[in-house]
Design a protein around this nucleic acid. Structure first.
Lengths: 204, 204
DNA sequence: GGTTAATTTAACCATTTGATAAAACACAGA
DNA sequence: TCTGTGTTTTATCAAATGGTTAAATTAACC
């Protein structure tokens, strides 16, 4: 009873540490120690640090993906679908800041568009793109928004939703008196407001 | 004659390497080798790797700051000042992608808002904040835009301007057939379009 | 109990890491 | 020429790194 699943322990611990300190900021010793296992076990199960990192990366992306897919198609009646979509998107980003940080880290390491862990997860991203763009073109057909380039708009929505969580330390540093809880909860409404105004049909 | 300024050589080389591979992705040996100096010289001039990194960081931020301050106040007649501002902002970000990447890297390492290199450059960021917000409140007074929270809006503008350069590898991966040059030059107009529509006064 | 395979461990290795101390160099001015 | 000062190199260090190996332990099945 109560057997411990060392393989999973290693992956979970590694994920946590990689998210916090980046691929190069963590050693296999750190991981082994934090996971309470012997260092050799890491290589026994995952072969190399690189592969462990890729596994942790994919693990995180996949979890995120299933979550976002589930929520994004949950349209509520009454509100414009596009607004629900954006609201859900930012909520999920907020709940998956770790995944976002890891993704951005990997993007920073990417050169010439080549990254092993990113390529491993390419399919996930592609199907995500497909679903996001569908939401946008549906909204356009329904007359909820004016015509805009869907890819550009997708990038804009992601930018607005994601970037604050990266820049948060900076926002705090620059505005020492700010009530950060307040700012954060206003952020969602601000983004919705900006986007809905920016995308709405001209009413003339 | 033609004495070589080793101290500056080290800083410049280190900056380049740190930008590319991150703080933990570069060793002092790498830097010394690339700069064509002895490794011990790095410690002679900068004391530690950490201090060298902080110096490189500040160096980059400062350069960026002077550039942006100069351009941002260059209002052209005819166009709304706010549009000129956004256009200049994205241009400068585009020209300083390295600085942006280094900044984001540092933000990712920041915990509890504490980061030595970031704190070292706090004043720069604060005065930048002041000037950006002034542009926004001026635009509001002139009736160019409706009332919006200036800090939220500042964060949104920065998000839109910066994030694409981080996500570029992903955009390329997800849209294999995309003409990236095209997409990039359209990006500016898309952002302007989205923001000007999102911020404009209601005309009813 | 014995056999076998999966899991876990301790001990070890070569290399690289950040950092130091001391020696060598260059070049002033006295 | 001697001396002092700022610069650069050589040599070296202990610690940490990613990774390996072989032995020990455990679990499972016959």
């Amino acid at each position: 009873m109560s057997e411990k699943d060392s393989k999973k322990d290693i992956l979970d611990t590694a994920t946590k540490l990689f998210v916090k300190h980046g691929k190069n900021g963590v050693s296999t010793c750190d991981i082994a120690h934090a996971a309470g296992v012997n260092k050799a076990l890491i290589f026994y199960y995952y072969g190399s640090k690189e592969k462990l990192y890729a596994a942790a990366f994919k693990n995180l992306i996949q979890t995120f993906f299933y979550e976002i897919r589930e929520k994004i198609n949950n349209s509520e009646p009454g509100l414009p679908a596009i607004e629900v979509f954006i609201r859900n998107h930012i909520t999920i980003i907020k709940e998956n800041q770790n995944m976002m940080k890891m993704l951005v880290r990997e993007l920073l390491l990417t050169e010439n568009g080549q990254s092993f862990p990113l390529n491993e997860s390419a399919d996930i991203f592609k199907s995500l793109r497909y679903e996001m763009i569908k939401v946008l073109s549906d909204a356009r057909e329904k007359g909820e928004i004016r015509y805009v380039d869907p890819v550009q708009t997708m990038v804009s929505i992601i930018s607005l939703d994601v970037f604050y969580f990266l820049g948060k330390p900076l926002v705090q540093m620059i505005n020492p008196t700010i009530d950060i809880e307040d700012f954060e909860s206003n952020r969602v409404d601000h983004i919705i407001d900006l986007l809905m105004n920016g995308l709405r049909k001209d009413q003339e």
